[in-house]
């Protein structure tokens, strides 16, 4: 990728948790890039390391028990190991993050307006009145019908959908370059989910904010993103344009995920989710981590791998060049 077009370049990112004498490598060798305004999805089963990858970019993992390796270059600075004083100018200003549970992610004893206002006043010099004006405008821009009232409400007085809108307003009020959204719709009703996704798309398009969309729901990524990263057991196994991955995934795990997707699966045939279990973090195989569950396994798969690029996909599979795997859509459906 042309470096001028890169907003964030992550390379060799690995997260290790230290607990006494035991060390657990939760993710390793994570590498990807995001262009300005691009919308990238991270998908994978629960526990594969999506959330901690997002948190590590903002230095939000508990410092005493975490070792983060690798680099994450953002506007000429390496976010990994960035001193607190500099990181504070990135957080909420250049890169924002929203979380799964809007109720527990908002401070229960401060009003929504206070929580937006303090974000503004942390990054800009603004009087209380100016901050209020901006906060109300931000609430209005995320589609909250009575922004003045919500401004003076406490989180518990709002519905789940309204809370997540408020959360988005807080995250976007300083017009960051990148928004990390960690399962922002998982805790919401289905109808509200669609509204929140539309809102994130609209906001991203309007302000040119890039989106890193973390989810275990491939359907959401298919609707939202231009590129998707598939994670498995702490590694990226495939990095591909969404359109291409939906039709012809290159990694057996991506293919399995796509085929177990009821909404997109061809002719309504609901396929069972992938059989087998994720290997234990403390006992990772040296070769392909997916091998135990993979129907295409061969002896060579036990050797250590790297991500290899072909046809715009980066894939961590020994057999990617020979396998032709089914996606969620056939070529014909995709064209239609």
């Amino acid at each position: 990728m042309n470096p001028d077009e890169t907003l964030l370049a992550v390379d060799g990112l690995g997260i290790t948790f230290v607990n006494g004498n035991t060390r657990v490598e939760a993710t390793s060798d994570i590498g990807f890039a995001i262009a300005p305004g691009e919308r990238v999805g991270i998908v994978g089963e629960s526990g594969c390391g999506k959330t901690i990858t997002g948190l590590s970019l903002l230095g939000l993992l508990p410092p005493a028990t975490t070792i983060v390796a690798g680099t994450a270059m953002f506007e000429g600075e390496n976010l990994i190991g960035l001193p607190m004083s500099r990181m504070r100018h990135v957080r909420g200003r250049k890169i924002s993050m929203i979380f799964q549970e809007p109720m527990s992610a908002l401070d229960p004893v401060f009003t929504i307006g206070q929580q937006i206002g303090e974000t503004i006043r942390t990054h800009f010099s603004a009087t209380k009145a100016e901050a209020r004006e901006r906060a109300v405008a931000a609430l209005e821009s995320v589609g909250i019908p009575s922004p003045e009232r919500v401004h003076d409400s406490y989180p518990h007085q709002l519905s789940g959908g309204m809370r997540q809108r408020a959360m988005i307003a807080i995250a976007l009020v300083c017009e960051p370059r990148l928004l990390i959204a960690d399962e922002p719709t998982t805790a919401l009703d289905v109808t509200i989910q669609a509204q929140i996704i539309d809102l994130l798309l609209a906001q991203s398009a309007r302000s040119g904010t890039a989106l890193l969309f973390i989810t275990h729901d491939l359907g959401v990524v298919a609707e939202t993103c231009t590129r998707m990263l598939t994670m498995y057991a702490g590694e990226i196994v495939e990095d591909a344009p969404v359109d291409s991955a939906l039709v012809r995934p290159r990694h057996p795990y991506t293919s399995g995920l796509l085929r177990s997707l009821p909404r997109l699966s061809a002719r309504g045939a609901v396929l069972p989710s992938i059989a087998g279990r994720v290997p234990d973090l403390r006992d990772m195989p040296r070769g392909c981590r997916f091998a135990e569950r993979c129907g295409h396994r061969r002896a060579e798969c036990a050797q250590a791998q790297v991500l290899e690029e072909a046809d715009g996909h980066r894939v961590r599979c020994w057999r990617q060049s020979e396998l032709v795997l089914p996606g969620a859509l056939t070529e014909r459906e995709a064209a239609a």
Binding site: L58, L60, M84, R88, H89, V90, R91, G92, R93, S96, M97, F99, E101, S104, A105, L106, D107, P108, E118, T119, T122, H123, M167, I170
Partner: peptide, 16 residues
């Protein structure tokens, strides 16, 4: 708590 994590994510100082 998770809301304190949010406060850090917004760029607030540990003192605040």
């Amino acid at each position: 708590s998770q809301y304190v994590r949010t406060l850090y994510a917004k760029g607030l100082s540990p003192t605040a």
